[in-house]
C-alpha cells in the first residue's frame, strides 16, 4: 500500500495553504498599492489589532468544530467588560480581579447558551441569535445605555508590553497556543473533533457528548469576554454599541483560516490566520484610501468567498465519503 496523503488531508492542506496564500496575496497587493502598508510598524499594528477578533475566533473554532455556531459573541464582548467595569468603578476592584470577573461573566453567558443547546436541544443558531439580543439588552439595561469609563489603571494594563511585545499580542499568543495544545493533545480536544465529525457515532462510542458540546460554548463565551476586555483595556471606555456585529468578523476569521462550518475541520491556527487576514484587509482598505462606504462591501465579499470555498470542500468530502463500489474509471 502506498503512503498516499489522505484525500481529506490533502484537501485540508490545500485549504490551509489557501488561507496562507490569501493572506500573502492580500499583504502583497496592499503593499504594492501603498508602500506604507508594509512598514514593520504597520504590520505589527495589524497583528496587534487582530488579537481582539483573534481571541474570540479561537473560541469560535471550538464551536465550529462541533458544527455549531455562536452568534452571541459580539454581545458577550460587551457584557463581560461591562460587568468588570461596574465592579472596578463602583466597588474599587483592581485590574486583575476585573479581568477575572469579565472572564467569569463570559463563561456564565456561554454556559447559558450551553443549557439551551445541550439541555433543551434548541439549535445553536436560534439560541445564540436570541442571546445575542438578550445579553446586549441586559447590558444596556444595567447602565441605561450610558457609556462606561474605566479607571486609568486599566489602560496602563492594556497599553503595557512584555519584553517589547504589546500585551494584546501576548494574550492572543498564549490563548492560541493553549487552544492548540487542548485541541491536539487532550482527550477533550480530540473528542471535540470526533463529535464534529459524527455526533451520532460519538454518542454510540460512549463519549461524553453533552459535556463536549457544552464545553465549547463555555470556551467561546469565555474567550469572547476576554477579547472584549483586551480591546477595552486599550480604549478605556465602553460604549453601548461596543462589539455590535463583531460575531461576523469572528466567524469569518475562523472560516477564512480554514475551520469548516460543517464541523470536524480546523484548529487554533485557523483563528490566528483568519483574524490576521481580516485585519490586513481592513487596514489595507484604510491605507489605500478606498471609499469608506465601500469597505464593508469588500469585507463581505472576502467572507463570502471563504464560506463558498468551505461549502465546496464539504461537497467534495461528501462525495469522497460515498461508498465506492468499483474503482473509478481512469
Amino acid at each position: 500500500m502506498t503512503a498516499a496523503v489522505s484525500p481529506q488531508g490533502a484537501l485540508d492542506l490545500a485549504t490551509r495553504m489557501g488561507a496562507v496564500l490569501m493572506l500573502v496575496a492580500i499583504v502583497l497587493i496592499f503593499g504594492a498599492l501603498t508602500p506604507g502598508f508594509l512598514a514593520p510598524d504597520s504590520l505589527a499594528n495589524i497583528i496587534k489589532q487582530s488579537s481582539f477578533i483573534g481571541i474570540a475566533a479561537v473560541g469560535m473554532v471550538f464551536v465550529l468544530l462541533t458544527a455549531g455556531i455562536d452568534l452571541s459573541v459580539g454581545s458577550v464582548m460587551y457584557l463581560g467588560p461591562l460587568v468588570a467595569g461596574l465592579l472596578m468603578r463602583d466597588a474599587g476592584v483592581g485590574v486583575a480581579l476585573g479581568l477575572l470577573a469579565c472572564v467569569a461573566t463570559g463563561a456564565v453567558l456561554g454556559a447559558i447558551n450551553a443549557v439551551f443547546i445541550v439541555g433543551l436541544r434548541v439549535i445553536p443558531f436560534i439560541v445564540t441569535l436570541a442571546t445575542l439580543f438578550l445579553y446586549r439588552g441586559f447590558g444596556t439595561w444595567l447602565v441605561e445605555s450610558r457609556q462606561l469609563d474605566f479607571p486609568d489603571s486599566l489602560r496602563g494594563f492594556g497599553l503595557a508590553s512584555v519584553l517589547g511585545v504589546p500585551v494584546p499580542i501576548v494574550i492572543f499568543a498564549i490563548i492560541a497556543a493553549a487552544a492548540h495544545v487542548i485541541l491536539r493533545h487532550t482527550v477533550f480536544g480530540r473528542h471535540v473533533y470526533a463529535f464534529g465529525n459524527d455526533p451520532l457515532a460519538a454518542q454510540k462510542a460512549g463519549l461524553p457528548v453533552r459535556r463536549i458540546q457544552a464545553g465549547v460554548y463555555v470556551i467561546s463565551g469565555t474567550l469572547a469576554a476576554l477579547s472584549g476586555f483586551v480591546l477595552i483595556s486599550q480604549i478605556g471606555r465602553l460604549d453601548a454599541g461596543f462589539g455590535e456585529g463583531r460575531e461576523f468578523d469572528v466567524i469569518a476569521a475562523a472560516v477564512l483560516g480554514g475551520a469548516s462550518l460543517f464541523g470536524g475541520i480546523g484548529g487554533a491556527g485557523s483563528a490566528v490566520l483568519g483574524a490576521i487576514t481580516i485585519q490586513a484587509v481592513k487596514a489595507g482598505l484604510v491605507f489605500s484610501g478606498v471609499n469608506l462606504y465601500l469597505q464593508p462591501l469588500l469585507q463581505g465579499a472576502v467572507i463570502l468567498v471563504a464560506v463558498f470555498l468551505d461549502g465546496l470542500r464539504e461537497a467534495r468530502l461528501r462525495s469522497l465519503r460515498r461508498r465506492v463500489i468499483r474503482p473509478r474509471a481512469g
Binding site: 481529506q8 487532550t186 480530540r190 470526533a194 465529525n197 459524527d198 460512549g206
Partner: peptide
C-alpha cells in the same frame, strides 16, 4: 461504522480511553 473520518486510526482505536502522559502532564494524551 462508528468511526471518525477526520481522526487517525490510532485515535479512533482509543477515542474512549486515550493513554495519558505520566505525572504532571497527565492531562495530555
Amino acid at each position: 461504522l462508528n468511526l471518525f473520518t477526520n481522526l487517525s486510526v490510532a485515535e479512533n482505536l482509543f477515542i474512549d480511553g486515550f493513554p495519558r502522559r505520566p505525572g504532571l502532564l497527565r492531562g495530555l494524551i
